[in-house]
Simulated assay, not measured.
Amino acid sequence: MEELIYFHDHALVILTLITIIVFYGLISIITNTFTNRFLLESHHIETIWTVIPAIILIFLALPSLRLLYIMDELNDPHLTIKAIGHQWYWSYEYTDYQDLEFDSYMVPTQDLNPGQPRLLEVDNRLVAPTHSPVRVLTTSADVLHSWAIPALGLKMDAVPGRLNQLSFLTPRSGVFYGQCSEICGANHSFMPIVLESVPLNVFEDWASSLME
């Protein structure tokens, strides 16, 4: 998500400069500032306004391709989690641990504790260690779902009979909320995702307690 924000700011600066130049050109035409016929009909001008946009596209394309590579490639993940979409809840399997799997259902409104967000809290949170690259494999048991956590820049479709992959690394502890982002049926908006990022020692204690 940090890289997405950096690319957004980079593209916004370029867009702002283009907007300023275009408005300056429009105002100059309206006020008849450009009246030199030899300048307006020059081949050099046509070459300039063809080459400059190509250079601008290069400055946008290179960071974009780099970002796509960063989001797609993951070498040596410390943890692999399989997220399975159901109508209408998520199941998680920690493939690096034996018999560590659970279902995650939305907490009904009447059962919420003070401070818990409505339609976003679940009974069993997905837990992952901080500062560790994590791979998430998504699939579905019935229809199309989409595993998404906007705060981390994560979104991947869960397709029946197919495994998709995404990766993330959380730089700090915290709780991150998301929802299924695919219209998967009547209760589509009632299958939230909650990721709790904790220090490695806390994660190991949590995993050990579930396997006992």
Rank of each mutant, 00 (worst) to 15 (best):
H43K: 14
I45N: 11
E46S: 07
E46T: 05
I48K: 15
T50Q: 13
I52R: 13
I52P: 12
I56P: 11
F59L: 06
L60P: 00
L62F: 07
P63L: 02
P63G: 03
S64E: 14
L67S: 07
L68R: 07
L68P: 01
M71R: 14
D72A: 10
D72P: 02
D72S: 12
E73D: 09
D76G: 07
L79F: 13
K82G: 15
I84W: 00
G85I: 05
G85V: 06
Q87M: 15
Y89D: 06
S91W: 00
E93A: 15
Y94K: 01
D96F: 03
Y97H: 05
Q98L: 03
L100Q: 05
E101G: 15
E101Q: 10
F102V: 11
D103I: 06
M106E: 14
D111M: 12
D111L: 12
D111H: 07
L112D: 02
N113Q: 10
P114Y: 13
Q116P: 01
L119P: 00
L119M: 14
L120K: 11
L120W: 15
E121C: 02
N124A: 04
A128R: 07
T130R: 03
T130W: 06
T130C: 01
T130P: 01
H131Q: 13
S132E: 10
V134Y: 00
R135K: 09
R135W: 00
V136Q: 03
V136C: 05
V136E: 04
S140N: 05
S140Q: 04
S140K: 05
A141P: 04
D142L: 06
V143Q: 02
L144E: 14
S146V: 03
A148N: 09
A151E: 14
L152R: 12
K155S: 12
M156L: 10
M156I: 08
M156N: 14
A158W: 00
P160G: 02
P160I: 09
R162E: 13
R162F: 03
S167I: 09
S167K: 12
P171R: 06
P171V: 01
R172E: 15
R172P: 08
G174E: 10
G174P: 11
Y177I: 03
G178P: 02
Q179V: 03
C180H: 00
S181M: 15
E182Y: 14
C184Q: 08
C184E: 08
